[in-house]
Design a binder for these strands. Sequence first.
DNA 1: TCTGGTATACCACTAAAGTGGTAGGCGGGC
DNA 2: GCCCGCCTACCACTTTAGTGGTATACCAGA
Lengths: 215, 215
Amino acid sequence: MQDNSASILLIDDHPLLRKGVKQLIEMNPNMQVVAEACNAVEGIKQAQKYDPDLILLDLNMPEINGIETLKMLREENVSSRIVVFTVSDNEEDVVAALKAGADGYLLKDMEPEDLLTSLEQAATGTLVISPRLTTLLAQALQSNKRSDKIDMQTLTPREKQIIRLIANGMANKVIARKLNITEGTVKVHVKHLLKKLRLRSRVEVAVWAVQEGLN
Amino acid sequence: MQDNSASILLIDDHPLLRKGVKQLIEMNPNMQVVAEACNAVEGIKQAQKYDPDLILLDLNMPEINGIETLKMLREENVSSRIVVFTVSDNEEDVVAALKAGADGYLLKDMEPEDLLTSLEQAATGTLVISPRLTTLLAQALQSNKRSDKIDMQTLTPREKQIIRLIANGMANKVIARKLNITEGTVKVHVKHLLKKLRLRSRVEVAVWAVQEGLN
DNA sequence: TCTGGTATACCACTAAAGTGGTAGGCGGGC
DNA sequence: GCCCGCCTACCACTTTAGTGGTATACCAGA
């Protein structure tokens, strides 16, 4: 950039909203909208052309949605900070966005001045999140805590212990050494827990356990 | 309880702090401290005796720490809401507490009136989190997003595809049928991706992939 | 054109995982 | 006291998984 203001790319399919956001952003002399796009393909093209400091990305877009766009941007090795800017306070969206590598998640109903502050922070690399999402984030982390009790109940303590070790990728032999029992005995436990969980291999056990947060 | 105020159990090894919190809580007629404990064992005993609506749990305790205590309480099927109350704004602690099933995480440096409000909410079943932890929670969800990019980059499309199938628990033979290639070829791909990811078995691949959200 | 990476296939081999059955010791409940 | 569930152990056996090497074909970049 010719000056040292932060360059921003807007990706949103609503022209009016882009206009409004652009006006708001350019009230702050430290930030500048260098490009706009109304869909994923266009957005990626612009991102590669301008390599902006910050990309403001809408989630609800026709054809390719925001999360997909985000993943595609990352695939293309776009190094810009990417902040999702959306109306959706849906848990799945927030979690998906963050897991896909979003550097922020801001809601469109924010106060304009708060938005400006957040964008400035985001441009410098700070992870910004609308405060309203705190509780939701915490719930996402808890996620599955109590749902597994049903299956887990039928397992003996030893079996649960072995499931955790499998979910850490350990082989039977390693588990045996760790628990000071023979490999044969480990196999017995594995056999039993496979039956109880109605799974077909230790890989399935590992996947299940990791998803339940057991490791 | 004889009245309909929320019953609270304090578990904290600092008597002075317990005293302070108790005084604060009882300024609100809707809440009442029914018991106190200075360690895990005592805490569990009291929890079972009084079955309080809410347990306020310190993390830094001698012998058995707060997270362990939390797990033990859940093991004992204590149904009280459990809110962690600590000085630690450490990411690991927050995440561990929530994963262990905490119904809240409050920092000791909160304003007393905010604390009271939060406790009241917690007693009614709302998940309460100190606002200061928002960013941290989001980071925890992102977790390791970019650390692996290096690894992922070296993988061929075919290998990525096979990783996803492994992460769904599939055996080589099943993968072969799905991709219309021989089992031997699948093994070749698996061999290569194991090398690239420096993992030792498909179980480790599955665990890694699930944690990265690849399935 | 040559090189290098990718995808495929086959082979032989070793190692690990999973199955089936038997069995002893141990602790809790009827 | 007896039975039952749990943990342990051993056995033989089959199936999967993983290793090492060789080889063909395709495609893209130097």
